[in-house]
Nucleic acid binder design. Structure first.
Lengths: 158, 158
DNA sequence: GTGACATGCATAGCCTTCCTATGTAACCTG
DNA sequence: CAGGTTACATAGGAAGGCTATGCATGTCAC
């Protein structure tokens, strides 16, 4: 094999960095997400799991707020909510303060489902993560923390 | 704000870490991928960009090898290759050693497109990454490195 | 050789997940 | 209460992915 030079020149030494870091991060995150999504045979499709997580984290939400948080269009959020409600994982209630708005929240069944989903994901990933050295896991955890802050910072004000 | 407790509870038991790390990683990676994918108005759809990157990194590949690397089904890889070829970003050649097989490789146009894609992604992410502190970026870079190793380790033998 | 199985890719048909554009009902402002 | 704005729903369509299946080529036992 001709050993092509790598397509993603990592930030080996100097700064080189912000540009490469962004691309490397995007590539790695995308590949990992894809891999993990297939490895874990999910009880719930990704889109629903994402939406349901947002609801659990951030309480009752309007459809449009959910759309903003999930970075989807409002129609997509409407559809997601409809499917969640069909499954019994979320409930819709009129907003007492605004007749146009709808407040969506997780149901108890949704919470249970979410825990199961997370457990399945954890099971699927455990072997791989377990094969890492302790300091690698620590690096990964710090990276995740930064990533969380990054994404949160870009989040809509709500 | 009611301050709901975090959505990602840990297993009460012993080490606590690996499980949570996996779920947190998956959640963050998925959210980041989704956010970045929308923020960068991509000249090329994600699926094509993924496939093309693999081709550039790993040289001429059989369709089935590409499928394995990209964690897609073989029919999906066939479709991706067809679209890449349509755009002129990849070329197909018969495998001289196996009449059934096809060797796919990036074209020069594909390489140019890929560089442009990466530049666009870098531009889109630069402001966010730039807003991080230097040590945060370093943490992130280390995390990405670990993630790369993790995904690579799970990759098919090829 | 030649029949039987294995392998590599293509095709068919379907589902999910998104999008934009547009409609409708409820709010607000003068 | 007319006109604009806001919040959600609906319509229609594209992309990306899957399983199942078909077809051609290799491989191996005999």
């Amino acid at each position: 094999m001709p050993e092509r030079t790598t397509a993603i020149p990592g930030p080996p030494g100097a700064e080189g960095g912000v540009q490469d870091l962004g691309v490397a991060l995007l590539v790695s995150a995308a590949r990992f997400t894809r891999w993990a999504g297939r490895a874990a045979d999910a009880p719930m499709p990704q889109a629903l799991w994402r939406a349901l997580s947002q609801l659990e984290e951030l309480g009752p939400l309007r459809v449009s707020a959910l759309a903003a948080l999930d970075r989807t269009s409002q129609p997509t959020a409407t559809a997601l909510v409809a499917r969640l409600v069909e499954h019994g994982w979320a409930v819709r209630a009129p907003d007492p303060e605004d007749g146009r708005a709808v407040l969506v929240d997780v149901s108890d069944a949704g919470r249970r489902q979410l825990h199961e989903q997370r457990a399945a994901a954890a099971r699927a990933l455990a072997p791989s993560l377990g094969s890492l050295a302790a300091d690698e896991r620590a690096d990964l955890a710090r990276g995740v923390a930064v990533l969380d802050r990054l994404v949160a910072r870009e989040a809509p004000a709500g």
